[in-house]
Design a protein around this nucleic acid. Structure first.
Length: 312
DNA sequence: CAATGTTTAACGAGCA
DNA sequence: TGCTCGTTAAACATTG
């Protein structure tokens, strides 16, 4: 398998799949979401190989965005007109490359319906219900603020201290260019197992994960009142008669996709146990939160419909 | 009209 | 050997 060396891939194809490249691009920006054109730009900027035959690989990339459940489409806000939507990573796609291979995933990430994910073990069910109850309670305490600009979407979200999402550009690009001997592969592999996801996830999905963080007494506040983290009116979360999806729910018609936040996977609680270690008391960005009271809708805390798991 | 997004199909490679 | 994944091509729809 090709591995990234210390050199840039000036003329050879990078050892990453389009899924990896796209995930890198998305993770490289603070908002954890990018329009298609920016994804193109990111890849072309860093991998000269992709400055040629743009029609070919960009078509493939678009195919991947649509085809793979690990990518979710975020509609633009009304005050941010433009072509196309934003693309983000599904919060649970982080272990796709657990085997360390960025050419071929261990397993394909699939969003599944709740009935497909009925808890198979009593302990799972109990855990799920317990977390569900906790989330509903903590959601009431979630705070939010109006976020007029994309650049502020990650406001109020505790920044990671040490943990970096495996897709984060810091983990891929940085090592790729900085670490002698091309350790990007091995480094990412070593960190890909059991990594604490929630910090990055709260960055990308604050509406989903902030409640979990609150549960674990993390010093974090939530962003969004009228608008969710992705600029979609929270108010429209309330299903029925609302204008826009309030949450970055996948636009693609997943069988269980319903208005509102239902994308809290049943194994999310696994992240909770990791949250303390991923929070740094010295994290300088934890004080950037702008909080205000929010009134999460019922669906905001219902994790029962849209589930995501890695399926093979 | 071009960019974006969706879908289908075919093919090769990796893996159990 | 069959299945899965990644890539590529193509057709078509949608959108600004």
């Amino acid at each position: 398998m090709p591995r990234p060396g210390r050199n840039t891939y000036s003329d050879q194809k990078p050892p990453y799949s389009y899924i990896s490249l796209t995930a890198m691009a998305i993770q490289s920006c603070p908002e954890k979401m990018l329009p298609l054109s920016e994804i193109y730009k990111f890849i072309m900027d860093r991998f000269p190989y992709y400055r040629e035959n743009t029609q070919r690989w960009q078509n493939s990339l678009r195919h991947n965005l649509s085809f793979n459940d690990c990518f979710i489409k975020i509609p633009r806000r009304p005050d941010q007109p433009g072509k196309g939507s934003f693309w983000a990573l599904h919060p649970n796609c982080g272990d796709m490359f657990e085997n360390g291979s960025f050419l071929r995933r261990r397993k394909r990430f699939k969003v599944m319906t709740s009935d497909q994910l009925a808890p198979s073990k009593p302990s799972d069910a109990a855990h799920y219900l317990q977390q569900h109850a906790k989330l509903r309670l903590s959601a009431l305490a979630a705070t939010s603020t109006h976020l007029p600009q994309m650049s502020s979407y990650n406001l109020g979200v505790s920044q990671p201290s040490t943990f970096k999402h495996p897709f984060a550009i810091e983990n891929i690009i940085a090592r790729e260019y900085k670490v002698p001997g091309g350790l990007a592969f091995s480094t990412m592999q070593s960190m890909s197992a059991g990594y604490p996801l929630h910090n990055q996830l709260t960055n990308a999905w604050p509406h989903m994960y902030s409640t979990s963080v609150i549960d674990t007494a993390a010093p974090i506040s939530m962003a969004s009142s009228d608008y969710s983290a992705y600029g979609v009116p929270i108010k429209s979360l309330c299903h029925g008669g609302q204008t826009l999806p309030a949450i970055p729910v996948p636009i693609k018609p997943t069988p269980a996709s319903v208005p509102g936040l239902s994308a809290l996977p049943h194994h999310i609680p696994a992240f909770l146990s990791n949250s303390p270690q991923s929070l740094s008391p010295t994290s300088p960005q934890t004080a950037t939160s702008q909080s205000s009271p929010a009134a999460p809708s019922e669906t905001l805390t219902n994790p029962s419909t849209l589930q995501s798991v890695a399926v093979h």
